[in-house]
Design a binder for these strands. Structure first.
Length: 475
RNA sequence: GCCGGGUUGGCUGAGCGGUUUAGGCGUCCGCCUGCAGAGCGGAUCUACGGGGGUUCGAAUCCCUCGCCCGGCUCCA
Protein backbone atom coordinates (compact mmCIF):
# COMPACT_ATOMS: atom_id res chain seq x y z
CA UNK A 1 0.00 0.00 0.00
CA UNK A 2 1.27 3.38 -0.90
CA UNK A 3 -0.35 6.78 -0.52
CA UNK A 4 -1.03 8.75 -3.66
CA UNK A 5 -1.37 12.51 -3.52
CA UNK A 6 -3.57 12.55 -6.59
CA UNK A 7 -6.33 10.45 -5.08
CA UNK A 8 -5.42 11.44 -1.53
CA UNK A 9 -5.61 7.92 -0.28
CA UNK A 10 -3.55 4.80 0.04
CA UNK A 11 -3.82 2.36 -2.76
CA UNK A 12 -2.16 -0.97 -3.47
CA UNK A 13 1.16 -0.69 -5.18
CA UNK A 14 1.14 -2.60 -8.45
CA UNK A 15 4.15 -2.00 -10.69
CA UNK A 16 3.63 -1.44 -14.38
CA UNK A 17 6.01 -4.23 -15.21
CA UNK A 18 6.14 -7.17 -12.85
CA UNK A 19 9.20 -7.17 -10.64
CA UNK A 20 10.35 -3.76 -11.82
CA UNK A 21 9.85 -0.31 -10.44
CA UNK A 22 10.40 3.00 -12.17
CA UNK A 23 11.06 5.55 -9.49
CA UNK A 24 11.71 9.25 -9.98
CA UNK A 25 12.67 11.47 -7.09
CA UNK A 26 12.91 15.20 -7.65
CA UNK A 27 16.46 16.14 -6.89
CA UNK A 28 18.15 19.35 -5.87
CA UNK A 29 18.69 22.63 -7.60
CA UNK A 30 22.42 22.98 -7.16
CA UNK A 31 22.80 26.57 -6.05
CA UNK A 32 23.96 26.03 -2.49
CA UNK A 33 24.85 23.43 0.07
CA UNK A 34 21.85 21.25 0.73
CA UNK A 35 20.32 21.55 4.19
CA UNK A 36 18.76 18.87 6.33
CA UNK A 37 15.30 19.75 5.12
CA UNK A 38 16.28 18.89 1.58
CA UNK A 39 17.75 15.70 2.86
CA UNK A 40 14.55 14.64 4.48
CA UNK A 41 13.03 14.21 1.07
CA UNK A 42 16.06 12.45 -0.31
CA UNK A 43 16.21 10.20 2.73
CA UNK A 44 12.60 9.23 2.35
CA UNK A 45 13.41 8.44 -1.26
CA UNK A 46 16.15 6.22 0.08
CA UNK A 47 13.81 4.47 2.52
CA UNK A 48 11.43 3.78 -0.31
CA UNK A 49 14.15 2.61 -2.61
CA UNK A 50 15.63 0.29 0.01
CA UNK A 51 12.27 -1.14 0.84
CA UNK A 52 11.54 -1.88 -2.81
CA UNK A 53 14.96 -3.50 -3.00
CA UNK A 54 14.16 -5.55 0.08
CA UNK A 55 10.93 -6.67 -1.53
CA UNK A 56 12.91 -7.96 -4.46
CA UNK A 57 12.04 -5.35 -7.03
CA UNK A 58 14.47 -4.31 -9.68
CA UNK A 59 14.37 -0.56 -9.13
CA UNK A 60 15.31 1.99 -11.74
CA UNK A 61 15.85 5.06 -9.62
CA UNK A 62 16.26 8.44 -11.26
CA UNK A 63 17.12 11.65 -9.48
CA UNK A 64 17.49 14.79 -11.54
CA UNK A 65 19.92 17.59 -10.90
CA UNK A 66 18.67 21.03 -11.84
CA UNK A 67 21.75 22.87 -13.00
CA UNK A 68 20.22 25.65 -15.08
CA UNK A 69 17.54 28.01 -13.81
CA UNK A 70 17.22 31.51 -12.39
CA UNK A 71 19.08 31.05 -9.14
CA UNK A 72 22.04 29.16 -10.51
CA UNK A 73 22.47 31.79 -13.22
CA UNK A 74 22.04 34.66 -10.82
CA UNK A 75 24.37 33.38 -8.10
CA UNK A 76 27.10 32.18 -10.41
CA UNK A 77 27.00 35.59 -12.06
CA UNK A 78 27.26 37.32 -8.73
CA UNK A 79 30.29 35.25 -7.94
CA UNK A 80 31.75 35.91 -11.33
CA UNK A 81 32.30 32.29 -12.24
CA UNK A 82 30.90 30.16 -15.00
CA UNK A 83 27.59 28.43 -14.52
CA UNK A 84 29.21 25.06 -14.87
CA UNK A 85 31.90 25.73 -12.31
CA UNK A 86 29.22 26.92 -9.94
CA UNK A 87 26.82 24.02 -10.35
CA UNK A 88 29.61 21.44 -10.33
CA UNK A 89 30.64 22.63 -6.92
CA UNK A 90 27.21 22.21 -5.40
CA UNK A 91 26.57 18.98 -7.22
CA UNK A 92 29.65 17.59 -5.52
CA UNK A 93 28.43 18.89 -2.19
CA UNK A 94 25.12 17.17 -2.72
CA UNK A 95 26.68 13.86 -3.68
CA UNK A 96 28.97 13.99 -0.70
CA UNK A 97 25.92 14.43 1.52
CA UNK A 98 24.37 11.32 0.03
CA UNK A 99 27.46 9.32 0.92
CA UNK A 100 27.92 10.75 4.38
CA UNK A 101 24.31 10.02 5.23
CA UNK A 102 24.52 6.59 3.66
CA UNK A 103 21.86 7.09 1.02
CA UNK A 104 22.00 4.46 -1.65
CA UNK A 105 23.02 5.96 -4.97
CA UNK A 106 20.29 6.30 -7.56
CA UNK A 107 20.59 4.48 -10.84
CA UNK A 108 21.25 7.76 -12.57
CA UNK A 109 21.54 11.49 -11.86
CA UNK A 110 20.65 13.23 -15.10
CA UNK A 111 21.43 16.90 -15.36
CA UNK A 112 19.06 19.33 -17.01
CA UNK A 113 21.80 20.70 -19.24
CA UNK A 114 22.37 17.26 -20.72
CA UNK A 115 18.82 16.95 -21.98
CA UNK A 116 18.26 20.26 -23.70
CA UNK A 117 17.91 18.74 -27.16
CA UNK A 118 15.21 16.39 -25.92
CA UNK A 119 13.47 19.26 -24.18
CA UNK A 120 13.40 21.30 -27.37
CA UNK A 121 11.91 18.34 -29.15
CA UNK A 122 9.30 17.93 -26.42
CA UNK A 123 8.33 21.59 -26.54
CA UNK A 124 8.07 21.52 -30.31
CA UNK A 125 5.65 18.62 -30.09
CA UNK A 126 3.51 20.54 -27.63
CA UNK A 127 3.47 23.47 -30.07
CA UNK A 128 2.50 21.12 -32.87
CA UNK A 129 -0.37 19.86 -30.77
CA UNK A 130 -1.53 23.41 -30.23
CA UNK A 131 -1.35 23.33 -26.44
CA UNK A 132 1.52 25.78 -26.26
CA UNK A 133 2.25 29.14 -27.82
CA UNK A 134 5.21 31.38 -28.52
CA UNK A 135 5.17 34.75 -26.78
CA UNK A 136 7.64 37.62 -26.79
CA UNK A 137 9.74 36.32 -23.93
CA UNK A 138 9.36 32.59 -24.29
CA UNK A 139 7.23 29.59 -25.06
CA UNK A 140 4.30 28.94 -22.75
CA UNK A 141 2.00 26.07 -22.01
CA UNK A 142 -1.66 26.99 -22.27
CA UNK A 143 -3.36 25.44 -19.30
CA UNK A 144 -6.79 25.97 -20.75
CA UNK A 145 -5.89 23.22 -23.18
CA UNK A 146 -5.56 20.77 -20.33
CA UNK A 147 -8.97 20.52 -18.65
CA UNK A 148 -7.70 18.29 -15.88
CA UNK A 149 -5.28 20.96 -14.70
CA UNK A 150 -5.34 21.06 -10.90
CA UNK A 151 -6.23 17.44 -10.37
CA UNK A 152 -3.10 16.68 -8.37
CA UNK A 153 -2.98 19.65 -6.05
CA UNK A 154 -6.74 20.21 -5.99
CA UNK A 155 -6.05 23.83 -6.68
CA UNK A 156 -8.92 25.77 -8.14
CA UNK A 157 -7.25 27.83 -10.83
CA UNK A 158 -10.13 30.26 -10.85
CA UNK A 159 -9.36 31.20 -7.29
CA UNK A 160 -5.62 31.12 -7.60
CA UNK A 161 -5.88 33.58 -10.38
CA UNK A 162 -7.36 36.10 -8.01
CA UNK A 163 -4.40 36.20 -5.67
CA UNK A 164 -2.38 39.35 -5.71
CA UNK A 165 0.86 37.80 -6.78
CA UNK A 166 -0.69 36.26 -9.79
CA UNK A 167 -2.21 39.52 -10.82
CA UNK A 168 1.22 41.03 -11.11
CA UNK A 169 1.79 39.84 -14.59
CA UNK A 170 5.44 40.31 -15.20
CA UNK A 171 5.60 37.85 -18.03
CA UNK A 172 4.13 38.13 -21.44
CA UNK A 173 1.78 35.22 -21.17
CA UNK A 174 -1.88 34.96 -22.00
CA UNK A 175 -3.18 33.63 -18.72
CA UNK A 176 -1.80 33.97 -15.25
CA UNK A 177 -1.34 30.26 -14.74
CA UNK A 178 0.33 29.50 -18.02
CA UNK A 179 3.86 28.44 -17.37
CA UNK A 180 7.11 28.72 -19.28
CA UNK A 181 8.39 25.83 -21.34
CA UNK A 182 11.21 27.82 -22.84
CA UNK A 183 12.63 31.17 -21.83
CA UNK A 184 14.32 33.47 -24.27
CA UNK A 185 17.79 34.56 -23.23
CA UNK A 186 18.34 37.86 -21.48
CA UNK A 187 21.19 40.12 -22.48
CA UNK A 188 23.19 38.94 -19.50
CA UNK A 189 22.68 35.33 -20.49
CA UNK A 190 23.73 36.08 -24.05
CA UNK A 191 26.84 37.85 -22.79
CA UNK A 192 27.76 34.94 -20.56
CA UNK A 193 27.04 32.36 -23.21
CA UNK A 194 24.27 30.76 -21.19
CA UNK A 195 21.85 29.88 -23.94
CA UNK A 196 20.91 27.19 -26.40
CA UNK A 197 19.76 27.53 -29.97
CA UNK A 198 16.15 26.57 -30.56
CA UNK A 199 13.64 26.87 -33.39
CA UNK A 200 12.14 29.85 -31.53
CA UNK A 201 15.34 31.64 -30.68
CA UNK A 202 18.17 31.50 -28.21
CA UNK A 203 17.20 30.64 -24.69
CA UNK A 204 16.96 27.97 -22.07
CA UNK A 205 14.40 25.50 -20.83
CA UNK A 206 11.80 26.35 -18.22
CA UNK A 207 12.08 24.59 -14.93
CA UNK A 208 9.14 22.24 -15.19
CA UNK A 209 10.05 20.72 -18.50
CA UNK A 210 13.16 18.94 -17.32
CA UNK A 211 11.48 16.41 -15.08
CA UNK A 212 8.92 15.53 -17.72
CA UNK A 213 11.57 15.05 -20.34
CA UNK A 214 14.13 13.17 -18.33
CA UNK A 215 11.55 10.92 -16.75
CA UNK A 216 10.18 10.04 -20.15
CA UNK A 217 13.54 9.59 -21.82
CA UNK A 218 14.84 7.32 -19.11
CA UNK A 219 11.76 5.45 -18.01
CA UNK A 220 8.99 5.84 -20.56
CA UNK A 221 5.62 7.54 -20.82
CA UNK A 222 4.26 6.17 -17.56
CA UNK A 223 6.24 5.54 -14.41
CA UNK A 224 5.37 3.91 -11.12
CA UNK A 225 6.35 6.48 -8.53
CA UNK A 226 7.28 10.14 -8.64
CA UNK A 227 8.34 11.65 -5.32
CA UNK A 228 9.34 15.03 -4.04
CA UNK A 229 8.87 17.60 -1.32
CA UNK A 230 5.36 18.77 -0.55
CA UNK A 231 6.06 22.19 -1.97
CA UNK A 232 6.47 20.71 -5.41
CA UNK A 233 2.89 19.52 -5.61
CA UNK A 234 1.84 22.86 -6.96
CA UNK A 235 2.75 24.13 -9.39
CA UNK A 236 5.72 21.98 -10.38
CA UNK A 237 4.16 18.53 -10.46
CA UNK A 238 0.88 19.87 -11.68
CA UNK A 239 2.70 21.35 -14.65
CA UNK A 240 4.60 18.17 -15.30
CA UNK A 241 1.33 16.29 -15.54
CA UNK A 242 -0.11 18.86 -17.91
CA UNK A 243 2.89 18.73 -20.24
CA UNK A 244 3.43 15.02 -20.27
CA UNK A 245 -0.16 13.90 -20.45
CA UNK A 246 -0.93 16.42 -23.16
CA UNK A 247 1.85 14.94 -25.21
CA UNK A 248 1.41 11.23 -24.57
CA UNK A 249 -2.27 11.01 -23.76
CA UNK A 250 -1.33 8.54 -21.06
CA UNK A 251 -1.18 8.68 -17.28
CA UNK A 252 2.17 10.14 -16.35
CA UNK A 253 2.60 8.72 -12.86
CA UNK A 254 0.78 6.01 -10.92
CA UNK A 255 1.79 7.09 -7.43
CA UNK A 256 2.60 10.64 -6.41
CA UNK A 257 4.51 10.76 -3.17
CA UNK A 258 5.01 13.99 -1.29
CA UNK A 259 7.23 14.37 1.71
CA UNK A 260 6.21 16.74 4.45
CA UNK A 261 8.51 19.59 5.28
CA UNK A 262 11.03 19.55 8.07
CA UNK A 263 10.69 22.31 10.63
CA UNK A 264 13.23 23.56 13.10
CA UNK A 265 12.02 24.50 16.54
CA UNK A 266 8.53 24.63 15.14
CA UNK A 267 9.06 26.77 12.08
CA UNK A 268 9.96 26.11 8.52
CA UNK A 269 13.59 25.74 7.64
CA UNK A 270 14.57 28.02 4.80
CA UNK A 271 17.47 29.99 3.54
CA UNK A 272 15.63 33.26 3.70
CA UNK A 273 14.85 32.80 7.40
CA UNK A 274 18.46 31.93 8.03
CA UNK A 275 17.50 29.03 10.25
CA UNK A 276 18.73 26.22 8.05
CA UNK A 277 21.45 23.82 9.02
CA UNK A 278 23.56 21.66 6.80
CA UNK A 279 24.17 17.98 7.23
CA UNK A 280 27.72 18.82 8.28
CA UNK A 281 26.39 20.88 11.17
CA UNK A 282 24.33 17.96 12.35
CA UNK A 283 27.08 15.41 11.94
CA UNK A 284 29.43 17.56 13.98
CA UNK A 285 27.21 16.87 16.97
CA UNK A 286 25.43 13.62 16.27
CA UNK A 287 26.17 10.35 14.57
CA UNK A 288 24.96 9.55 11.08
CA UNK A 289 22.97 6.68 12.57
CA UNK A 290 21.18 9.04 14.94
CA UNK A 291 20.41 11.40 12.10
CA UNK A 292 18.92 8.63 10.02
CA UNK A 293 16.97 7.39 13.01
CA UNK A 294 15.63 10.90 13.45
CA UNK A 295 14.24 10.86 9.91
CA UNK A 296 12.90 7.36 10.39
CA UNK A 297 11.16 8.15 13.63
CA UNK A 298 8.34 10.07 12.02
CA UNK A 299 6.17 9.05 9.11
CA UNK A 300 7.09 10.88 5.93
CA UNK A 301 3.70 12.58 5.59
CA UNK A 302 3.84 14.02 9.06
CA UNK A 303 5.70 17.14 10.05
CA UNK A 304 9.10 16.53 11.56
CA UNK A 305 10.60 19.05 13.92
CA UNK A 306 14.33 19.34 14.43
CA UNK A 307 15.33 20.22 17.98
CA UNK A 308 18.35 19.44 20.08
CA UNK A 309 16.17 17.34 22.29
CA UNK A 310 14.72 15.24 19.52
CA UNK A 311 18.23 14.62 18.21
CA UNK A 312 19.40 13.49 21.63
CA UNK A 313 16.48 11.12 21.85
CA UNK A 314 17.37 9.76 18.45
CA UNK A 315 20.97 9.33 19.48
CA UNK A 316 20.03 7.38 22.60
CA UNK A 317 17.39 5.33 20.87
CA UNK A 318 19.54 4.28 17.99
CA UNK A 319 22.35 3.43 20.38
CA UNK A 320 20.02 1.00 22.05
CA UNK A 321 19.51 -0.80 18.79
CA UNK A 322 23.23 -0.80 18.22
CA UNK A 323 23.99 -2.14 21.69
CA UNK A 324 22.15 -5.29 20.78
CA UNK A 325 24.65 -5.82 17.98
CA UNK A 326 27.43 -5.53 20.57
CA UNK A 327 25.71 -8.04 22.81
CA UNK A 328 25.31 -10.44 19.94
CA UNK A 329 28.94 -10.11 19.07
CA UNK A 330 29.92 -10.67 22.66
CA UNK A 331 27.75 -13.74 22.96
CA UNK A 332 29.15 -15.22 19.78
CA UNK A 333 32.65 -14.92 21.19
CA UNK A 334 31.72 -16.86 24.27
CA UNK A 335 32.22 -20.58 24.64
CA UNK A 336 29.11 -22.60 23.93
CA UNK A 337 27.05 -22.53 27.05
CA UNK A 338 23.83 -23.71 25.55
CA UNK A 339 23.52 -26.44 22.97
CA UNK A 340 19.89 -27.20 23.72
CA UNK A 341 16.94 -26.55 21.57
CA UNK A 342 14.07 -26.37 23.97
CA UNK A 343 10.90 -24.45 24.37
CA UNK A 344 12.66 -21.22 25.15
CA UNK A 345 14.55 -21.46 21.88
CA UNK A 346 11.44 -22.10 19.85
CA UNK A 347 9.56 -19.36 21.66
CA UNK A 348 12.38 -16.98 20.94
CA UNK A 349 12.57 -17.86 17.28
CA UNK A 350 8.80 -17.56 17.03
CA UNK A 351 8.81 -14.06 18.47
CA UNK A 352 11.60 -12.98 16.14
CA UNK A 353 9.58 -14.25 13.22
CA UNK A 354 6.49 -12.51 14.42
CA UNK A 355 8.32 -9.22 14.88
CA UNK A 356 9.80 -9.52 11.47
CA UNK A 357 6.28 -9.86 10.17
CA UNK A 358 5.27 -6.74 12.05
CA UNK A 359 8.20 -4.86 10.61
CA UNK A 360 7.36 -5.88 7.07
CA UNK A 361 3.69 -5.12 7.49
CA UNK A 362 4.54 -1.65 8.77
CA UNK A 363 6.83 -0.91 5.85
CA UNK A 364 4.31 -2.27 3.38
CA UNK A 365 1.73 0.06 4.83
CA UNK A 366 2.78 3.29 3.16
CA UNK A 367 6.33 3.12 4.44
CA UNK A 368 5.54 3.29 8.14
CA UNK A 369 9.13 3.60 9.29
CA UNK A 370 8.05 4.51 12.78
CA UNK A 371 6.13 1.26 13.12
CA UNK A 372 9.13 -0.57 11.71
CA UNK A 373 11.34 0.90 14.40
CA UNK A 374 8.88 -0.26 17.03
CA UNK A 375 9.21 -3.80 15.79
CA UNK A 376 12.97 -3.41 15.79
CA UNK A 377 13.02 -2.22 19.38
CA UNK A 378 10.90 -5.16 20.40
CA UNK A 379 13.23 -7.51 18.58
CA UNK A 380 16.23 -5.89 20.18
CA UNK A 381 14.70 -6.47 23.61
CA UNK A 382 13.90 -10.09 22.81
CA UNK A 383 17.45 -10.74 21.67
CA UNK A 384 18.94 -9.04 24.72
CA UNK A 385 16.82 -11.14 27.03
CA UNK A 386 17.65 -14.31 25.19
CA UNK A 387 21.36 -13.60 25.47
CA UNK A 388 20.86 -12.89 29.14
CA UNK A 389 19.56 -16.36 29.84
CA UNK A 390 22.32 -18.04 27.89
CA UNK A 391 21.99 -18.23 24.17
CA UNK A 392 22.24 -21.20 21.89
CA UNK A 393 24.61 -19.79 19.32
CA UNK A 394 22.94 -21.42 16.36
CA UNK A 395 19.59 -20.02 17.35
CA UNK A 396 21.12 -16.64 18.08
CA UNK A 397 22.74 -16.56 14.67
CA UNK A 398 19.38 -16.99 12.99
CA UNK A 399 17.87 -14.19 15.02
CA UNK A 400 20.88 -11.95 14.54
CA UNK A 401 20.77 -12.40 10.78
CA UNK A 402 17.17 -11.32 10.69
CA UNK A 403 17.81 -8.40 12.99
CA UNK A 404 20.71 -7.13 10.95
CA UNK A 405 18.83 -7.58 7.71
CA UNK A 406 16.00 -5.42 8.95
CA UNK A 407 18.35 -2.77 10.28
CA UNK A 408 20.05 -2.66 6.93
CA UNK A 409 16.73 -2.41 5.14
CA UNK A 410 16.40 0.93 6.90
CA UNK A 411 20.01 1.79 6.19
CA UNK A 412 21.05 1.53 9.82
CA UNK A 413 24.35 0.06 10.94
CA UNK A 414 25.38 -1.01 7.49
CA UNK A 415 28.97 -0.28 8.15
CA UNK A 416 29.72 -0.85 11.75
CA UNK A 417 32.97 0.29 13.23
CA UNK A 418 34.26 -3.20 13.67
CA UNK A 419 37.66 -2.13 14.87
CA UNK A 420 40.24 0.01 13.24
CA UNK A 421 42.26 -2.82 11.83
CA UNK A 422 46.00 -3.07 11.58
CA UNK A 423 48.29 -1.64 14.12
CA UNK A 424 45.68 0.46 15.92
CA UNK A 425 43.77 -2.68 16.64
CA UNK A 426 46.84 -4.35 18.07
CA UNK A 427 47.81 -1.43 20.22
CA UNK A 428 44.38 -1.19 21.77
CA UNK A 429 44.41 -4.91 22.43
CA UNK A 430 47.73 -4.64 24.24
CA UNK A 431 46.35 -1.82 26.38
CA UNK A 432 43.22 -3.81 27.12
CA UNK A 433 45.26 -6.84 28.15
CA UNK A 434 47.50 -4.74 30.33
CA UNK A 435 44.50 -3.21 32.00
CA UNK A 436 43.01 -6.62 32.58
CA UNK A 437 46.13 -7.60 34.53
CA UNK A 438 45.91 -4.43 36.59
CA UNK A 439 42.33 -5.20 37.39
CA UNK A 440 43.22 -8.67 38.57
CA UNK A 441 45.72 -7.04 40.85
CA UNK A 442 42.91 -4.76 41.94
CA UNK A 443 44.82 -1.74 40.76
CA UNK A 444 41.69 0.12 39.89
CA UNK A 445 43.20 3.56 39.87
CA UNK A 446 45.40 2.74 36.94
CA UNK A 447 42.86 0.57 35.14
CA UNK A 448 40.24 3.31 35.34
CA UNK A 449 42.72 5.80 34.05
CA UNK A 450 43.38 3.66 31.01
CA UNK A 451 39.69 3.26 30.36
CA UNK A 452 39.03 6.98 30.78
CA UNK A 453 41.88 7.99 28.55
CA UNK A 454 40.84 5.58 25.85
CA UNK A 455 37.34 6.96 26.17
CA UNK A 456 38.63 10.44 25.50
CA UNK A 457 39.96 9.38 22.13
CA UNK A 458 36.79 7.54 21.22
CA UNK A 459 37.62 3.99 22.25
CA UNK A 460 34.87 2.59 24.40
CA UNK A 461 36.02 -0.18 26.66
CA UNK A 462 33.57 -2.23 28.67
CA UNK A 463 34.07 -5.07 31.08
CA UNK A 464 31.98 -8.15 30.68
CA UNK A 465 31.92 -11.53 32.31
CA UNK A 466 34.12 -12.80 29.49
CA UNK A 467 36.70 -10.06 29.72
CA UNK A 468 36.96 -6.60 28.28
CA UNK A 469 35.42 -5.64 24.98
CA UNK A 470 36.15 -2.51 23.11
CA UNK A 471 34.94 -0.65 20.09
CA UNK A 472 35.72 2.56 18.34
CA UNK A 473 32.83 4.99 18.41
CA UNK A 474 31.30 6.23 15.22
CA UNK A 475 32.40 9.74 14.59
C1' G B 1 -9.24 34.59 1.76
C1' C B 2 -8.73 29.43 -0.38
C1' C B 3 -6.56 24.34 0.31
C1' G B 4 -4.06 20.77 3.40
C1' G B 5 -1.95 18.94 8.12
C1' G B 6 -1.52 18.98 13.31
C1' U B 7 -3.27 19.51 18.64
C1' U B 8 -2.08 12.69 23.15
C1' G B 9 1.46 11.61 29.72
C1' G B 10 8.37 15.10 31.73
C1' C B 11 9.98 14.66 26.21
C1' U B 12 9.23 12.00 21.54
C1' G B 13 5.49 9.51 19.24
C1' A B 14 1.53 5.26 18.03
C1' G B 15 -3.50 4.41 18.42
C1' C B 16 -8.25 6.24 14.67
C1' G B 17 -15.45 3.20 18.67
C1' G B 18 -14.88 -1.52 23.29
C1' U B 19 -7.78 -6.74 24.83
C1' U B 20 -3.14 -3.94 26.86
C1' U B 21 -1.38 3.05 31.18
C1' A B 22 1.65 1.31 22.76
C1' G B 23 6.82 1.65 22.02
C1' G B 24 11.28 4.67 22.57
C1' C B 25 13.80 8.49 25.51
C1' G B 26 14.17 10.52 30.47
C1' U B 27 13.85 9.89 35.84
C1' C B 28 13.97 6.60 40.23
C1' C B 29 14.82 1.73 42.60
C1' G B 30 16.74 -3.25 42.28
C1' C B 31 19.91 -7.28 39.89
C1' C B 32 24.67 -7.71 37.71
C1' U B 33 29.49 -5.02 38.32
C1' G B 34 35.64 -3.37 42.27
C1' C B 35 33.43 1.01 39.89
C1' A B 36 31.36 2.67 35.35
C1' G B 37 28.90 1.34 30.92
C1' A B 38 25.76 -2.05 28.56
C1' G B 39 21.93 -5.47 29.62
C1' C B 40 17.89 -7.40 32.62
C1' G B 41 13.74 -6.65 36.30
C1' G B 42 10.52 -3.13 38.50
C1' A B 43 8.57 1.73 39.36
C1' U B 44 7.33 6.59 37.73
C1' C B 45 3.63 8.72 33.88
C1' U B 46 -3.29 6.16 33.72
C1' A B 47 -2.69 11.26 29.06
C1' C B 48 -5.69 12.50 25.01
C1' G B 49 -6.69 21.52 23.21
C1' G B 50 -11.95 23.84 25.14
C1' G B 51 -17.29 23.15 24.74
C1' G B 52 -21.47 20.50 22.95
C1' G B 53 -23.57 16.04 20.72
C1' U B 54 -24.15 10.65 18.78
C1' U B 55 -23.47 5.86 21.49
C1' C B 56 -24.50 0.86 26.28
C1' G B 57 -19.41 2.74 25.50
C1' A B 58 -15.11 8.01 22.30
C1' A B 59 -8.49 9.97 22.36
C1' U B 60 -11.04 7.54 18.37
C1' C B 61 -17.55 9.53 14.88
C1' C B 62 -20.42 14.53 14.27
C1' C B 63 -20.81 19.90 15.33
C1' U B 64 -18.47 24.14 17.22
C1' C B 65 -14.61 27.23 19.17
C1' G B 66 -9.35 27.92 19.99
C1' C B 67 -4.23 27.47 19.04
C1' C B 68 0.07 25.77 15.93
C1' C B 69 2.30 24.52 11.14
C1' G B 70 2.51 24.24 5.88
C1' G B 71 0.93 25.25 0.64
C1' C B 72 -1.50 28.95 -2.73
C1' U B 73 5.37 32.82 -5.27
C1' C B 74 11.70 30.21 -6.39
C1' C B 75 11.98 26.34 -2.58
C1' A B 76 12.86 19.25 -0.80
Amino acid sequence: MLYDTLTRRKKPFVPIEEGKVRLYVCGPTVYGDPHIGNFRTFSVGDFLRRWLDYRGYDVFHTMNITDIEDKTIRDSGAEGISLKEFTDRYTRSFLRGLDVLNLRRATTYPKATEYVAQMIDFVQKLLDKGVAYVADDGVYFDIDKFPEYGKLSHVDTEKVEKTERMMQDEYDKEAANDFALWKFATQEELDRGIYYESPWGRGRPGWHIECSVMSRCLMGDTIDIHAGGEDLTFPHHENEIAQTESLTGKTFVNHWLHVRFLTINGTKMSKSLGNYISFDDVLAKYSAEAFRYFYLSVHYRRPLDYTEESMKIAENSVARLGNTLDLIEGAMNQPDVNLDYTEKESTFIESVKELRGKFEAAMDDDLDTHGALDALHAMSGAINRYIDIGANKGVLTIAATTYLKLLNALGLYEKRAGGAGGITDDVISILADLREKLRLEKNYDLSDMIRDDLGKIGVVLSDTAEGARWKIEDS
